[in-house]
Design a protein around this nucleic acid. Structure first.
Lengths: 164, 164
DNA sequence: GAAGATTGAATAGTCAATCTTT
DNA sequence: AAAGATTGACTATTCAATCTTC
């Protein structure tokens, strides 16, 4: 078997890796500078804001974000300390809990979102043709398909009524 | 201004984010299971193995991997403890240092590489048409271009003479 | 005993000093 | 004082228990 990637494949693979690393770093940097939120904070707030009653079970949150349970739990604890989310008991299943978006959390999201979306636009979508966008979606779909189970759900964006 | 992404853009963006998260998780999981190396370990070993004399200054390594200096330093310390790399003094510039690949480090890389490359093939390149591959490269190039400075260099793969 | 969730210890990564040489 | 590098403290993430309810 050929153990290596072809030169073409390798070139593509390395640029893809570079995009991941740098884009994530820049999005994080920009978001944190303008709002004090990390990308992880932002994603949690978005998911909560999209959910009925602005509340989710930790396990649901974990599935949506592709995070382990303990990561969710630690993250929620830290955000709770800052007043961005709260915990409530679950009436039906007394093992369970709810993570709920607080007023402050919603406020933080609403303040952070426009800038963050702007950054994504500027770095990714502006100057991307429709074809290129479609190609990217096809690529993502293919790889996700091969990654087994889950819904093709991701994490980010369009959360909340919002300014304008 | 429109603060939000269009529905199309949002769909694409979320799949792209999902791919990043899941692909990285799966590559890490598979690599670690088969070799005991993390993706970070692997990338460092690859870069060293590609360098003349199998040695790099920490700052060069940082540039190649898009890592901060302190991250490089901590990572090297941990890998040094495991015998995968060593440190040497730099004759020219006595502020500086070299990180060098050890025999054990090369061995670990050679053992890890075939499986890892196989995973990348299986998850990403198999079943990707040439057009799709080109599209991915164009996309990466565009975004990297907008991310400012650096060479379009990434991180990974094809390191070392290797088995076969 | 399995599911939902949390906790604590260990590993990784970031940020702000620090130290040495230039 | 700036460049190369390291260190220590702090934050984030993972991994292996643990605890409660089903």
């Amino acid at each position: 078997v050929d153990a290596w990637l072809t030169d073409d494949e390798q070139r593509v693979w390395r640029s893809f890796l570079a995009v991941q690393v740098r884009l994530a770093a820049e999005l994080n940097r920009a978001l944190h500078a303008s709002s004090g939120l990390s990308l992880a904070d932002y994603d949690v707030l978005v998911r909560l804001s999209e959910s009925p009653g602005c509340r989710l079970r930790p396990s649901e949150l974990g599935q949506l974000l592709d995070w382990e349970q303990s990561r969710v739990s630690h993250q929620v604890t830290r955000m709770q300390r800052r007043g961005l989310v709260g915990r409530e008991e679950c009436p039906e299943d007394r093992r369970g809990a709810y993570v709920v978006l607080t007023r402050a959390g919603r406020g933080a999201l609403e303040r952070a979102a426009p800038d963050h979306v702007g950054t994504v636009r500027r770095l990714v979508f502006d100057g991307l043709t429709t074809d290129e966008r479609d190609a990217l979606e096809r690529f993502s779909g293919r790889v996700l398909g091969r990654l087994g189970t889950g819904g093709s759900d991701g994490a980010d964006q369009k959360a909340v009524p919002l300014p304008e």
